[in-house]
């Protein structure tokens, strides 16, 4: 037997069930701060049905997990792999913790470690890309803990509240992952 790779000490990665989960997902987007940490597009609101439709239209390979706590099986966020380049064996990762009380508690970091393990050890990728916004310091620290290295910055690429912020590019290579895991 092989050990289950989608389960950690605080959380596990699980399927998102359209009916029960998307209602909660839609609720996370009511939080403007969540949206500003997640995406550079103007904040938008979606119905569960719209989210479901969007997920069903996602391109081949797109993989999304719900993040659930081990202690009470609560859905607290999601993590996704997208933009696969099979020749370069790379993909993009994105994560969002929708419930504020789970920010800063190590839940996101563990979920990211689990999805990296999955990406390298099951999907057999060589490289994972991510973007993080300069003002999202908590996420930046979390990604560094997971082994991601900063690869540069799109300088002043975002305008928020009258100030310009960098978009930071980070990458994690398989060989680096093996060193930290």
């Amino acid at each position: 037997m092989i050990a289950p790779i989608l389960t950690g000490k605080l959380v596990r990665l699980d399927v998102l069930n359209a009916e029960e989960d998307l209602e909660q997902w839609a609720g996370w987007f009511r939080n403007g701060e969540f949206q500003r940490l997640l995406d550079d597009t103007p904040a938008a609101l979606y119905t569960p049905a719209q989210i479901k439709e969007w997920l069903e239209k996602a391109p081949a390979g797109y993989t999304i997990f719900g993040i659930r706590t081990l202690c009470d099986d609560r859905l607290i966020g999601f993590v996704e792999l997208s933009g696969f380049r099979w020749s370069a064996r790379s993909a993009w990762v994105g994560i969002g913790i929708g419930l504020r009380e789970f920010w800063g508690g190590g839940y996101g970091t563990e979920a990211m470690r689990l999805v990296c393990k999955y990406a390298f050890e099951t999907v057999n990728l060589n490289r994972i890309n991510l973007n993080v916004f300069e003002y999202n310091e908590r996420a930046y620290r979390s990604y560094v803990k997971c082994g991601f290295k900063e690869e540069g910055r799109s300088r002043q690429a975002m305008l928020r509240d009258g100030k310009r912020w960098d978009v930071i590019y980070m990458g994690l290579l398989r060989e680096e992952w093996q060193a930290v895991d």
Binding site: A88, G152, Y169
Partner: peptide, 17 residues
């Protein structure tokens, strides 16, 4: 232009990254 980002091993061509 300013070299802003270097995405390491992000492309595979001619048998190498």
């Amino acid at each position: 232009f300013y070299l802003e980002v270097r995405q390491r091993q992000a492309l595979y061509e001619q048998g190498r990254y």
